[in-house]
Design a protein around this nucleic acid. Structure first.
Lengths: 111, 111
DNA sequence: ACGATATTTCTAGGATGATCGAAATATGGA
DNA sequence: TCCATATTTCGATCATCCTAGAAATATCGT
């Protein structure tokens, strides 16, 4: 399950890091370095995230550069929300309202 | 972690069931029955969901009625989305767009 | 007080997961 | 070809999780 892939602190942080580094991506070693985790340990986590479809890898000479698949992430988040709100718009509406200040297309609405 | 509580099929289904039965809730036995899981097994899962703050329980004579805490769920979903989209509105905007048809405050917008 | 119902807690076995040292694989430069 | 770099795969250990049988707790009706 894709949710399970994100339900682990090291992996969630790795995904966050990759999301923040879109669209350039980050090589495996840099990720392990940034999170202070051994490379082989991080490699396992990256493999799990990749198997869940949340990240992709492409070789770039000696390094393997990972990138977050944001479309897939949106899909997972949507599944979670829609699945749990099933048929009850009034339960999800405040969620959208809270999302607007962060990601709204128009007004920044800070403070 | 609250995400971990939902990253398990039986628990996710239990939460879905409770969300669908808002605001009445459902007694523990009915949940176990609906998902074809032994009562003690379900009890463990419910305890985990409760510890994560995603559900609440109240005794109702002989039964213990569980209810989904939708505010908490919204909080978790928001955390996940905001955390991963950190500072990148353009990544979350399509998420809102996809959410509108399901939970939009105004137009039903079906088909 | 007693028995029946509803649920939890205790306990344990089996499965899965996280971590990491060591070895293996792939790439590029001399 | 040989060595250095970057990453993965293998193997093992330790912890955690899922599951469910059995016993314990709480509530109600009589």
């Amino acid at each position: 399950m894709a949710l399970g892939a994100l339900a682990q602190s090291t992996r969630l942080e790795a995904f966050r890091l990759l999301a923040a580094h879109e669209p350039d991506g980050l090589p495996a070693g840099a990720i392990a370095d940034a999170l202070a985790v051994p490379q082989n340990t991080m490699s396992s986590h990256l493999a799990i995230l990749a198997r869940a479809g949340l990240i992709r890898s492409r070789r770039h000479s000696r390094s393997i550069v990972y990138r977050a698949d944001l479309a897939r992430f949106q899909q997972v988040a949507l599944f979670l929300i829609k699945d749990c709100c099933g048929g009850r718009p009034e339960l999800c509406t405040p969620l959208i309202a809270d999302l607007q200040p962060c990601c709204g297309p128009k007004e920044p609405a800070d403070v």
